[in-house]
Every structure is written in structure tokens, then in C-alpha cells.
């Protein structure tokens, strides 16, 4: 259960989040949509404590993380996996080492077991024969998928995806969508996905939240959103369709 209560955040007098409220249901896929530059990535970083809000609270499974010290925050973060918008792979490590990193840090496993998990996860995201390549040798889409593999390596309880399918070809996009749905069904984890892709939003989401001008202006099931009266939501859906 993730509760976001009245958070506000400004960067140099630019108000990005403004008294934003949102409840994210456990064990469901919540998709956040909104304009480019609207603050979606900022919101996602608040959830995992990378950015602290100017005011308001973020409560993860009953623990208010807004004022935790680093040590305790790290404990909370062990529940999380996160895919960054630009993948954020460690470029001093190979792709395989990147995916193995959270396993090496938090699991006591033999090298063989770790290698097996790494291969599995890379296969899941459709990457083969890249284990020993450096991130700089991959394409943008491949990097994104490697980042995805790293995010789900530990099968975390909460996974945050910042635009997992942007920059991928339609076929790959569909297979990643399927992967997200399948993984969620298997692990019953809480997924928070940021997406620009209205098609895949409606296929994968249990719940959709619309971010506009620093606030969540609409929340609901895909069907509710589709039939929303909110003018901005209507325009947004229509624009994205075209």
C-alpha cells in the first residue's frame, strides 16, 4: 500500500507537484499518464525517497518515508525495484554484472545461481548474448530492457517503471507489456508504470491516474478513464491516439 498525501514540490520556484494525493493499491498495476515535463518522473522518485517533498507525506506499508534517515530508508527500499527513464545502467559494469548487482548486494547466492537468474531475466526481456557487453555497446531500447531486467531481478514487492516501452518497436513494446502483466500476475507485486502509450496503458492497467498541473486530476479503471468527462483527459486520450 502506497499512500501519497498532499505532497508539493518546487524546483527553483517552478511548482512541479502541488498538493498531490494518490493511493496506489497493493498487488495491482497502476499507470500514471500525463504531459511530458508534467512531473511524472519526479512523482516516481518521491515514492522511492530519491526526492523529498517540500511538504506532505509518502507512506509505504505504514512507514512514513519523508523524514527517514538513510539507514532506515535503505531498509524500506529493499522492497523496491525501479527502472529509470534512461535505464541508468552502471556503465563501468557489463550488462550481466548490472543485472547481478542487486543479487550480489542483497542475496547470499552462489555464482552459479546468480548467473542462472541473470540469464533468465535477460531472456524474459528478450535480450540474448549481451551478458558480457558493456552498456555503451547497446542500443537505447536494449539498455532499457536491461534496466528492466535489473529492476525485477530480486522479484521486489513494489516495482516502479519509468516509461518501460518508450523507444521500442511495436513488437517489442507488446512483448514488454505482456512481460509486465505476466510478472505482476506471477509475483502479485505492486507495479507503478509511467507511460505515454495510451494503447498499452489501457491493456496493462488495473488503475489509471492522470497527472495534470501538479495534481492527479482523474483516477479510475481504464474503462472509467475512457468514459471520463474531464476535458483534459478526453483531449489527452484523443491526442495520443492520433
Amino acid at each position: 500500500m502506497i499512500e501519497i498525501i498532499k505532497i508539493s514540490k518546487s524546483f527553483n520556484s517552478q511548482k512541479v507537484l502541488d498538493d498531490l494525493d494518490l493511493n496506489i493499491d497493493p498487488g495491482k498495476i497502476t499507470v500514471i499518464i500525463g504531459q511530458s515535463g508534467g512531473g511524472k518522473s519526479v512523482l516516481l522518485k518521491h515514492i522511492i525517497g530519491l526526492i523529498r517533498p517540500d511538504s506532505g507525506q509518502i507512506i509505504i506499508d505504514g512507514i512514513d518515508i519523508t523524514n527517514l534517515n538513510d539507514k532506515k530508508l535503505n531498509e524500506v527500499r529493499k522492497k523496491f525495484g525501479m527502472l529509470f527513464q534512461d535505464a541508468a545502467l552502471f556503465d563501468s559494469m557489463t550488462v550481466g554484472e548490472n543485472v547481478a548487482f542487486p543479487l550480489n548486494e542483497h542475496k547470499r547466492l552462489s555464482r552459479k545461481e546468480i548467473n542462472k537468474i541473470v540469464d533468465d531475466k535477460l531472456n524474459l526481456v528478450g535480450l540474448e548474448n549481451v551478458t558480457h557487453k558493456m552498456p555503451s555497446e547497446l542500443s537505447g531500447g536494449m539498455r532499457k530492457r536491461a534496466g528492466l531486467a535489473r529492476a525485477i531481478a530480486l522479484d521486489p514487492k513494489i516495482v516502479l517503471f519509468d516509461e518501460p516501452t518508450t523507444g521500442l518497436d511495436p513488437i517489442m513494446r507488446e512483448s514488454i507489456d505482456k512481460l509486465i502483466v505476466a510478472t505482476q500476475e506471477r509475483t502479485k507485486a505492486t507495479f507503478v508504470v509511467i507511460s505515454h502509450d495510451i494503447e498499452s496503458t489501457f491493456t496493462i492497467a488495473h488503475k489509471v491516474a492522470m497527472l495534470y498541473q501538479g495534481k492527479i486530476v482523474a483516477v479510475g479503471t481504464p474503462d472509467e478513464i475512457r468514459s471520463s468527462n474531464n476535458s483534459f483527459v478526453r483531449r489527452f486520450i484523443k491526442d495520443l491516439r492520433d
Binding site: 499512500e3 498525501i5 507512506i59 505504514g62 512507514i63 512514513d64
Partner: peptide, 13 residues
Amino acid sequence: TDITTTTNGVTTT
């Protein structure tokens, strides 16, 4: 110990 109670959307810790 942190005890968080949520009543009617209002959370107190």
C-alpha cells in the same frame, strides 16, 4: 515502534 492508523483517509503516525 511506529503505529500508523488510517481512518477516513486521514493517517496518523
